[in-house]
Nucleic acid binder design. Structure first.
Length: 415
RNA sequence: CGGGGUGUCGUAUACCGGUAGUACACUUGCUUUGGGAGCAAGCUGACCCAGUUCGAUUCUGGGCACCCCGACCA
């Protein structure tokens, strides 16, 4: 992508109505555009990041047997009335058509996925099964806040699994939990898993995946030595206590953002829809249902919150909009421009995603933009690098700079 | 939803009861070109509705929007 053709531009100032770091940086760098409180559009750069995050999640969900779907987001009200959600879920957006027919906007998909599973999973032979989707969710939040961390329209991956027994659900939960840790690690984050209350629709405990950041909305207590972690309020121990699990570590308190969660929904939804399958003995049984969510847009916001500095965003490689940012400092020297064009074509031919700053600007502005946009690797071509017979490659993460000869550049950028 | 705050070019800001200035962005030209350049010219603005007033962007009331704290939060 030539930056001269990129739809968006950077800006020096953050809008005064955004306080959250994630929104300030993402707007300044041209990733997102605010439409209203809690609703953002994703521009070319932002969509690239979002798609990469989705792909990481997709790969990990597929790896544990999840099957991807695209479920409806405009829902019949009857399904919500059957489960009690029509009156019981206060964040549910309800809309009325011209003919006064009522609909709900999907804030979650149990009401859609359960009847579908009912149609196809009528035998124990069809279980377990896990289906998921990645798409828009709508929640009528009383107060949207924290940029893209809590919106009224947002992206979420939600998976639903159906099992014969509680044991089988527990088995799958462990698998899903490992997959979740992989997702967050690949996105450059360290997640902790907590036990929390299940909310309005499950009496059982749920598990929340938390990433430590002041931009979060939850306070957690966690062990410095082992994996023990719990929400303040649920935890029986307090800050400064010895860890009740390992007995070695001290408990610390911190703010965290919930980037994912898992709920044991039991048989609530199958009961609401009269969904039973036939077991080996021909008896009708209700399947155990599990629900697994990851907020994709919130995850993107969390990455920005955690991985950024005073100059801008520092994307991890796997989710960066491009893998390299090529900057030509040519001035009036047409040789530099020609050499940069040649390298750009070479990288494209080799399948390397590169943002090529071919704009007629001074070096300082290009560097400032590159730092703000946060692509992990920067490649500079100038009179200086040409005279030294290579390209200057530097890391956005640690600032390390090296001269890389022409013969090695493709290989270097692949890694 | 309770409390608090803010609405001025695209963005950030200033001033003012007498019709709005600056910076960046944008357009044109010239110079410049390794860390947000310089000169010149140009374009662009008072959230909406009412009231007070000779006159309102400014004061008052209402509405709307946005932000913050809280409550809420699959």
């Amino acid at each position: 992508m030539r930056q001269s053709k990129l739809f968006t531009k950077t800006r020096r100032e953050a809008p005064k109505d955004e306080v959250a770091k994630n929104a300030q940086l993402l707007i300044r760098a041209g990733y997102i555009h605010k439409e209203m409180a809690g609703v953002y559009s994703y521009l070319p750069l932002g969509l690239r990041v979002l798609k990469k995050i989705e792909n990481v999640i997709r790969e990990e969900m597929n790896a544990i047997g999840g099957q991807e779907t695209a479920l409806a987001t405009l829902h019949p009200s009857e399904n919500w009335k059957k489960t009690g959600g029509w009156d019981g879920v206060d964040v549910l957006f309800k809309i009325q058509s011209r003919t006064e027919k009522e609909y709900a906007l999907g804030q979650s998909e149990e009401e859609i996925v359960t009847p579908i599973a009912q149609e196809y999973a009528s035998s124990y032979k069809d279980l377990p099964v896990a289906i998921y989707q990645i798409g828009q969710k709508y929640r009528d939040e009383l107060r949207a806040k924290s940029g893209i961390m809590r919106g009224r329209e947002f992206g979420m991956k939600d998976m639903y699994s159906f099992h014969e027994t509680q044991e089988d659900f527990d088995r799958f939960y462990e698998i899903a939990k490992k997959a979740y840790f992989k997702v967050f690690a690949r996105c450059g984050l360290t997640a902790k898993v907590t036990e929390a209350s299940g909310g309005a629709f499950s009496e059982k405990l749920s598990y929340e995946f938390m990433v430590l950041t002041d931009a979060g909305e939850d306070d957690i207590i966690y062990c410095s030595e082992c994996a023990h972690c719990a929400n303040v309020g649920v935890s029986k121990a307090a800050e400064g206590d010895m860890c009740p699990k390992c007995g070695k570590g001290k408990l610390a308190k911190a703010r965290a953002a919930e980037v994912g969660n898992v709920f044991d929904l039991g048989v609530k939804y199958p009961k609401a829809f009269d969904f039973t399958y036939k077991d080996k003995n021909g008896e009708a049984k209700s399947p155990i249902v599990g629900c697994y969510g990851i907020g994709t847009t919130r995850l993107m916001g969390t990455i920005v919150e955690v991985l950024s500095d005073e100059k801008g965003i520092v994307w991890p490689k796997v989710v960066a909009p491009f893998s390299a940012h090529l900057i030509a400092i040519s001035g009036s020297n047409t040789d530099v421009g020609a050499e940069a064009d040649r390298l750009y074509e070479l990288l494209c031919e080799n399948g390397i995603e590169v943002l090529y700053d071919d704009r007629d600007l001074r070096a300082g502005e290009k560097f400032a933009d590159a730092d703000l946009i946060g692509i992990p690797v920067r490649v500079v071509i100038s009179e200086k690098t040409i005279s030294e017979g290579g390209f200057e490659v530097s890391s956005r993460t640690n600032g390390e700079t090296a001269m890389v000869p022409d013969s090695d550049i493709v290989e270097r950028l692949r890694n």
